[in-house]
Design a protein around this nucleic acid. Sequence first.
DNA 1: AATGTTCAATATGTCCTACATATAGACAAA
DNA 2: TTTGTCTATATGTAGGACATATTGAACATT
Lengths: 231, 231
Amino acid sequence: MNESLINDLSKNLGRVKANTMADDVELKLRQYLKKMSLKPGDALPKETDLAEALGVSRNVVREALSRLRMLGMIETRKRKGMVLASPDILQAFERVLDPLIIDDTTLRDIFELRLVLEMGLADLLYVRMTEADIDELEQIANNEINKDKSFLVKNEIAFHGKLYEMTGNSTLKRFQIMLLPVFAYVIALVDKPVSGKIDHRGLVSILRNGSKEDFKKGMYAHLKPHFDRLK
Amino acid sequence: MNESLINDLSKNLGRVKANTMADDVELKLRQYLKKMSLKPGDALPKETDLAEALGVSRNVVREALSRLRMLGMIETRKRKGMVLASPDILQAFERVLDPLIIDDTTLRDIFELRLVLEMGLADLLYVRMTEADIDELEQIANNEINKDKSFLVKNEIAFHGKLYEMTGNSTLKRFQIMLLPVFAYVIALVDKPVSGKIDHRGLVSILRNGSKEDFKKGMYAHLKPHFDRLK
DNA sequence: AATGTTCAATATGTCCTACATATAGACAAA
DNA sequence: TTTGTCTATATGTAGGACATATTGAACATT
């Protein structure tokens, strides 16, 4: 019983997964929604009709619908039936993104994804940011003087969060919020939190007076300890 | 009965959502998984036990489990029961990311997200890319000479896809693949596909001979038409 | 005309029972 | 040790039943 050999095999072959009818129905429903090119608000057939049309029990249909409902693709109302909704694309993500469950490789990948995002923010920032934004960011940065460590962590989050917010892209902002726990988790694994040569106040002053290229260099310097750990 | 007014109201207020028991159970199960800090492969109680413990019918439990199963958080096997799995974080995403269903604001957000990613790739690229990578990329770029438009679109995808691949971050790569339809959709909405001053072969030559900063500037020039449309 | 009230129809939400089916785990055979 | 056989069992599916909220209409009130 070579355990690791089995693990290898299983990884290479992939498990055989007998699709349940709920899986099929879920797929068919999604295809149906797409095919009919239904718009949000449009009514859907009722459960019993779907069950009959698909030749499965209402239970199976409900399992599939339950999934779509979770993803926010449909909404159901007591007597009216179901309507197509505008799904919140990040909602599903949120449920799964638990550092304790995600495997280490993916965890590292996500950490890197955050670095990529942070480095790419500049171009949006320099299009959208306002003086008021910078003022607010400066306040956050100034809060950091003479504070204990736990406060610093919170402030770190606030600072970078504000940066995302300043892009005026709310999906991006929410994405960042979701990635936070992963970031925190990876940081915790590392020996000690080092900060780059440029701190938050340095970044603020660049935003106020410097060019976009300056900011990109500054951000890289700020994140350099993380980049140095890449391999 | 101003229809659009009602629609607006509903959007601003949000609907009141009476949680179903399946919602509750789903939440409780997720909390349970977290609290017990179960590792992938660990066994879970069987459906009937869960139902009894939670004081709900097996149906409700199954709906909740069906959701977790879809997210890849658990796997069920016929006689053994359920085991905690290592969820594929992007799986859920994939299902929802249909340009036809996502609302326009989010669509624009995602498009911008892609720009951010693309601009941020450089730092990972210059750590990980190999000569062989660049060779392959060059081949893709050289394929573009004297080809019809539909081929160009495919090649465009291949080129940028290869860039993501070169970061050695498979999550990032998969993420890009998922965003492709959105990208294509947004592009299709725009008058005509313009390309920046630097084309793919230009980027390749920078990768081969230029610095990271050169590449960042090159990528910006390449994507400039898109950045110009931002507001 | 706008707001309240009543009321019946009905689609979803929930529970229950029953049975089919795959398979884990034990044991037997090679 | 490997391979075949068997059985208990947890999931998968079906279908019936009923509770419940809520729509939409009809009607009364201000």
